[in-house]
Simulated scan of single mutants.
Amino acid sequence: MLKVVQKLIQLLQPRMSQFAQSNKNLSKHLFEKARAQENIHFLKLQREQLKSLREKILSQKNEVTTKIIKVDKLIQSLEKTKKEIN
C-alpha cells in the first residue's frame, strides 16, 4: 500500500509542479496588472496637480503683467507731468 501511495505521488508530482507554476504565473500577472493600475492612478493625480499648478502660474503671470502695465502707465503720466512742469 505504501509503495502504491509513493508511486501515485511520483506520478502526480509533475502535475502539481505545473499547477504551482501556473499559480505563480497567474499571481505575477495579477500583481503586474494591479501595479499598472496603481501607477495609472498616481499619474492621473500628478496630471491634475500639474494642471492646477500650471493654472496658478498663468494667473500669477497675468497679475504681474497687469501690474507692469499699470506701473508703465503711471511712469508715462509722471513723465508727462514732468515735461509740463519744465
Rank of each mutant, 00 (worst) to 15 (best):
V64M: 06
K83C: 01
K56N: 10
Q46D: 10
V71H: 07
V71G: 01
V4F: 15
V64Q: 05
R35M: 02
L43E: 14
V64P: 00
A36V: 01
K80R: 12
E84N: 09
K7V: 06
Q13A: 13
N23Y: 06
R54L: 07
L53P: 00
T66D: 11
E32I: 01
L43A: 10
L8M: 06
Q21N: 13
I40A: 14
K44N: 09
T66F: 08
K56V: 04
K70F: 05
R47Q: 15
K44A: 09
L12D: 06
K51V: 04
S59D: 07
M16F: 06
S77V: 02
I75V: 05
L78A: 03
K82W: 03
P14Y: 00
E48F: 03
Q21R: 12
K33T: 02
M1C: 08
K24M: 06
L11M: 13
K3V: 07
T65S: 12
L12C: 05
E55V: 02
V71S: 07
A20S: 06
F31Q: 13
L78D: 01
R54S: 11
Q60R: 04
H29W: 12
T65G: 02
L26S: 05
Q76V: 02
A20Q: 12
N39P: 00
S17A: 12
I40F: 10
E79Q: 09
S17R: 15
Q10T: 12
H41W: 03
Q60E: 08
I85P: 00
A20M: 05
K3L: 14
T65V: 06
A20E: 10
M1W: 10
L2W: 12
N23P: 00
S77A: 07
L45N: 07
V71C: 05
K3N: 14
N86W: 06
S27L: 14
V71E: 13
